[in-house]
Write a protein that binds this DNA or RNA. Structure first.
Length: 588
DNA sequence: TTAGGGTTAG
């Protein structure tokens, strides 16, 4: 009936039946193909308005190759069609195709507009195409759009997403007018490149300039707080969100969950989660992951069960969080079940990260043979170094010398430039008393000019961050900190602490070992925190690499002697020390 | 004859 009507009228004005049929079809591939048929039958395929609408809807439907076929069938594409296509392909996630259409546009000698450039630059940013982006930037200047504020904001994003923060900042500083989006771009740019302090600095400048932050601003700033583990600052940002009367949308709510979880305050993260009126798969995953990294394995699994019952459908990221929770809490049964469900119930294919969790989980639980079997059953391309590294950690933990050596040698073969593998192998040899081998590994490492990653710890006191590294004496109150730490360590020894020597890196000479152990960065940061904060206050430390066994042991005693809760976030997870024990139950 | 942009969370 409808086809007949379309064929009869044949008109192509926006009010025409065929145009309305197109709008009704919406971004659906099948429906669009049907209307396309009507358009051809009715003879209205020469109407540019209709074709342009059809093409952009096809792009929105995700049918990029259909879009391209339709585009190529248009004899003389005009600037309207190019701009529509460039905008749609950029917006709906086809950055490479945006670039293709842009080149075609130039080939047809059609002048781009500022709107063309914003979309093209966004696509370059999406694929971090710095060289191409620079060419487009030159073209922007040639065409006279260099001072368009939208184009400038897009360029700031391009440079920061491609890692050229210097160029981003130069451009940003030169902008005569900076919209809230431009500020947000600069803040997120710093944060995403790991420059959290700079992100917060820009946020403060923004306020000095009197620019009103929006929810996107806070998402970026909260991510910076999460990276730093800066709970005090994060809380004050949360207050700002409330005071500004901003609606906590799902992205902002998720950022708050992550911030609280990554600063070690899981109950506050849960409070935010419970208060959200919209919760998507990312929000649920963030909360499960928060439980996982803080060592609350059973809570993570419980929340996952609730999600399965009446939440959104979990995806592969959700399963990484669940399996990590099981690995850290020794929930082998639950972990096996989740791993099986992933495929059977949800049709998801486990990837490297899931295998790492499984090997980690089985390995920690002492099921070394099963863990090793799992690796051997993987296809060669799936057995990534990370999976073997998890296996190596398990071998060291359970002191399985023979298997450990096999695994470490494999790792040295595939990743000879990774200093971590040499350190692990040498630790395993040291455990087995093979000091000749320890020496050999040390020489191999030195021969390749590899060095162990330098560890450092940070602590926030009164919203100011202090950084400590091993043996560091640059701090103005160094003497006081060292003196206090010495005193603290002797109290710990009286309480029963004995240094765990095996974790001292092999390159350190014998007489330096005790010194190196005593002045590891986390111990210095804790001593500083204890000196600078009131009795009873929890101490929160962030460390860039994993904590060593000796520090782990020492901090347990520190928590008893000082009657303080000490929370350390290391590269992998959280350790909440209280009354002489750790939330990880020494299972790490 | 047809509109319109750049920033955000697992």
């Amino acid at each position: 009936m409808e086809a007949k009507q379309l064929a009869v009228t044949g008109s192509s004005t926006p009010q025409s039946p065929v145009y309305r049929a197109l709008l009704r079809a919406g971004p659906s591939h099948r429906a669009l193909q049907q209307v396309h048929g009507h358009i051809v039958v009715s003879g209205s395929h020469r109407s540019r308005a209709l074709l342009t609408k059809l093409i952009t809807l096809a792009c929105e439907a995700g049918s990029i190759f259909y879009t391209r076929r339709l585009f190529l069938s248009v004899p003389n594409p005009d600037s309207f069609l190019f701009n529509s296509l460039i905008k749609a392909s950029s917006k709906f996630g086809f950055p490479q195709h945006t670039v293709f259409f842009y080149h075609r546009m130039l080939g047809f000698r059609i002048a781009p507009s500022s709107y063309t450039f914003t979309s093209v630059i966004k696509s370059c940013a999406d694929i971090s195409a710095l060289r191409l982006g620079r060419c487009v930037h030159s073209h922007v200047l040639v065409c006279g759009y260099g001072s368009d504020s939208f184009v400038q904001a897009a360029l700031v994003t391009l440079y920061s997403k491609s890692g050229d923060l210097g160029a981003a900042r130069t451009l940003f500083d030169k902008m005569p007018e900076r919209s809230v989006v431009a500020w947000n771009s600069m803040i997120s740019g710093y944060e995403q490149n790991g420059f959290s302090r700079e992100a917060i600095e820009v946020f403060n400048q923004m306020r000095d300039f009197g620019v009103e932050p929006d929810s996107t601003t806070f998402v970026g700033v909260l991510a910076a707080c999460s990276q730093l583990g800066a709970l005090g600052l994060g809380c004050s940002v949360h207050h700002d969100v409330i005071n500004n009367g901003l609606h906590v949308n799902v992205a902002l709510g998720t950022s708050l969950i992550i911030m609280y979880a990554r600063c070690g305050n899981v109950s506050k993260a849960r409070e935010v989660f419970d208060s959200m009126n919209e919760r998507n798969v990312r929000a649920w995953t963030a909360m499960i992951s928060g439980y996982a990294t803080n060592g609350y394995g059973s809570q993570a699994v419980e929340l996952f069960c609730q999600m399965r019952a009446h939440g959104p459908v979990p995806n592969t990221v959700t399963f990484v969080a669940v399996l990590a929770a099981c690995a850290h809490a020794g929930l082998v049964h639950e972990g096996r079940e989740a791993y099986a469900n992933m495929r059977q119930e949800y049709g998801l294919v486990p990837g490297v990260e899931h295998h790492v969790c499984m090997v980690d989980m089985l390995g920690r639980a002492g099921l070394l043979t099963e863990a090793y079997q799992l690796i051997k059953e993987l296809a060669p391309e799936e057995a990534a170094p990370a999976v073997w590294t998890a296996m190596l950690g398990a071998c060291k933990m359970h002191k399985n010398f023979d298997l450990g050596v096999i695994v470490a040698e494999h790792l040295l073969e595939v990743e000879p430039e990774n200093p971590g593998h040499y350190v692990m192998l040498s630790n395993i040899y040291a455990l087995a008393g093979r000091m000749d081998r320890v020496e050999m590994v040390r020489n191999m490492m030195m021969g390749r000019s590899l060095r162990k990653q330098v560890g450092y710890s940070t602590i926030d006191v009164n919203q100011k961050t202090y950084l400590f590294s091993m043996g560091d004496k640059s701090h103005p109150e160094t003497n006081e900190v060292y003196r206090y730490l010495d005193e603290l360590m002797s109290q710990c020894r009286e309480a029963g602490y004995a240094p765990v020597h095996e974790s001292v890196m092999h390159e350190v000479e014998e007489e330096e070992r005790e010194y190196a152990l005593r002045y590891h960065s986390e111990k210095l940061a804790i001593a500083f925190g204890l000196l600078k904060t009131k009795d009873g206050m929890a101490i929160r430390i962030v460390k860039n690499i994993r904590m060593c066994e000796d520090c782990h042991e020492a901090i347990k005693f520190m928590s008893v002697v000082t009657k303080r809760e000490i929370i350390v976030r290391d590269k992998l997870r959280f350790h909440h020390f209280k009354d002489g024990s750790c939330s990880c139950m020494d299972y790490w």
